[in-house]
Design a protein around this nucleic acid. Sequence first.
DNA 1: TGCCAGGCCGGGT
DNA 2: ACCCGGCATGGC
Length: 227
Amino acid sequence: MPADKPLKVIYNKLLSHFGRQHWWPARTPFEVIVGAILTQNTNWSNVEKAINNLKTAVNPADRDKSIGLLTPEKLYRCKLSDLAVLIKPAGYFNIKAGRLKNFMDWFFENYDGDLERLFNKNISSLREELLSVRGIGPETADSIVLYAAEKPSFVVDAYTYRIMFRHRLIPEEITYDELKAFFEESLQSDVKLFNEYHALLVRLGKTYCKKTKPQCTICPLGDLPHD
DNA sequence: TGCCAGGCCGGGT
DNA sequence: ACCCGGCATGGC
């Protein structure tokens, strides 16, 4: 019997140490998309405040004055400047308001604001199309594909890179696509697995593998090589 | 208090 | 093809 691959071993350790993470922390696929853009280089607790603002806001441009902007139609009709104020707690609010608008414009122009239509594509063309939107890079695209469309695209982020590098499992100069391929070639292509694995890496990173704290003696992966 | 957080873009080499 | 500055708030 061949031993399990290192990435599978790590997954099992993380899962038994932390338990299931129940990602993505959102109620609807559309909310996942908005959150994915808002959380770029930003603490999730700040994103929650911004999401909450969007949930409880009323769009002045709407005639019905109903509560909440977290539907495609509502967000699409929201002015850029109103959006920027609402998402302020998430940081980079001018940039991110523009990115949300870019996505919404593209989404309505090409898919009439219909998520079913957008997600009714094969995984690679969905990813490519998302990447063509200004403000959606590889991590955001993969997050949308995995957590909103629920297709098996492994999400790489700063924690993934840092954890893998510190355990000497990857070279320092590896690219996003190479690291993504490393995971996808080592694991079964399974939405639930990719979902849980990325969430667990983020959990590990937040807990034990922050940028300034190179030494980690109590990491649950401690028996692996470690700098 | 300064540093960090679930990136990405655009301009300069 | 890289490299780097800019973008910004809230928490520890």
